[in-house]
């Protein structure tokens, strides 16, 4: 029988492991990133559409 490896408690846990082990953080990111990139950005984009100016003031290429 091979001896059970003893973990070294002084090793620093890599950041990637810290991130993927925190499932509530993953849940929050999974909600926040689409919310910001789709909903918030989309609403900002829609809100920035200007009102139509008089036709003679329309400029080619906008």
């Amino acid at each position: 029988m091979t001896p059970t490896p003893v973990p070294d408690r002084t090793d620093r846990v890599p950041f990637g492991q810290t991130l993927l082990d925190d499932f509530f953080l993953l849940l929050a990111l999974g909600l926040l990133i689409p919310f910001l990139s789709y909903l918030v950005w989309g609403l900002l984009d829609l809100g920035s559409v200007p009102v139509l100016p008089p036709v003679d003031q329309l400029v080619a290429g906008g």
């Binding site: 029988m1 059970t4 490896p5 973990p7 070294d8 408690r9 090793d11 846990v13 890599p14 990637g16 492991q17």
Partner: peptide
């Protein structure tokens, strides 16, 4: 045989 505990650092 015993069940080995998971590795503390699995990030490779």
């Amino acid at each position: 045989m015993t069940i080995h505990p998971p590795e503390r650092i699995w990030w490779k």
